[in-house]
Structure formats: structure tokens, C-alpha cells
């Protein structure tokens, strides 16, 4: 089965979702990320969704849950690059992702994670 690659950089994990994921793949990413957080003792997770032109309630929930799981494992998650049309649709759908930190791009996301991990 395909997997979304997770890059390790210092104490951060970087995930760049480059294509539309089916549901099983999204769940596999959630599992892989939680494992990698512990294995790499990561303090931060950055998920780039700029290539996603659709985030429905399932993918939204996976993102939300992943951030919650990461928090329990002492890592902060920042979701970066959400397309404006995706943000509009998610709110109308009823999924405001209030528990997830966001930034407009990878650079700003990195800065946010750097700040919260005190580096």
C-alpha cells in the first residue's frame, strides 16, 4: 500500500501531502505520524496541505485527530497552506478545525513551531 512520506528535520516532522488521499491512506498517515513522533522524539509536526483542493469531513477529522494525538505525545501540530476555497468549504460544512494551529506557508509554520518549542 502507498504511504505518505514523513521527513524528519531536527526535532520536527514534515509531511507534504502531494495528492488527493483515499480514506485508508489518510488513516495510515495518522498512524505513521504518531509512531514517528515517539520514535524521533519530535516536538513539532508540520503538515503541508497546499496541494489538496478538497478537504472533506473525513480528511478534516483525520487532521484534527492527528493534532490531538500529537498533543498527547508532547508534539505541536501546524497545518500549513490551506487553500482559501477549502477553508470556506470546511466552515460551511461545519468543521472549523478549532483545535488545529495553522499557518499560511511552510516558513511561517516552522516559525510558529520554533516559537512554541522555545528554540
Amino acid at each position: 500500500m502507498d504511504r505518505i512520506p514523513i521527513l524528519s528535520m531536527g526535532n520536527l516532522l514534515l509531511v507534504i501531502i502531494q495528492f488527493d488521499m483515499h480514506d485508508r491512506l489518510a488513516l495510515a498517515l495518522q498512524d505513521d505520524l504518531t509512531e514517528q513522533i515517539v520514535k524521533e522524539q519530535a516536538k513539532g509536526v508540520l503538515i503541508d496541505i497546499s496541494a489538496l483542493d478538497v478537504v472533506d469531513s473525513f480528511i478534516g477529522r483525520v487532521i484534527n485527530n492527528t493534532a490531538s494525538m500529537a498533543r498527547l505525545l508532547a508534539a505541536e501540530t501546524v497545518v500549513v497552506g490551506m487553500q482559501p476555497a477549502v477553508a470556506i468549504t470546511l466552515v460551511e460544512l461545519g468543521l472549523a478545525l478549532t483545535g488545529v494551529k495553522t499557518a499560511l506557508n511552510v516558513e511561517k509554520g516552522m516559525a510558529l513551531l520554533g516559537k512554541s518549542s522555545g528554540r
Binding site: V54, D56, A85, T89
Partner: peptide, 17 residues
């Protein structure tokens, strides 16, 4: 429009699931 595309694709995705 891009926003209406995204809304319709998202609705289709919810119902397909």
C-alpha cells in the same frame, strides 16, 4: 468558480462516502 467547485466536490465526496 473555484469556491463552488470546491463546495460541490466536497458534497459529492461526503455523499459518496
Amino acid at each position: 468558480s473555484l469556491v463552488d467547485q470546491t463546495k460541490c466536490v466536497t458534497a459529492a465526496s461526503e455523499l459518496a462516502r
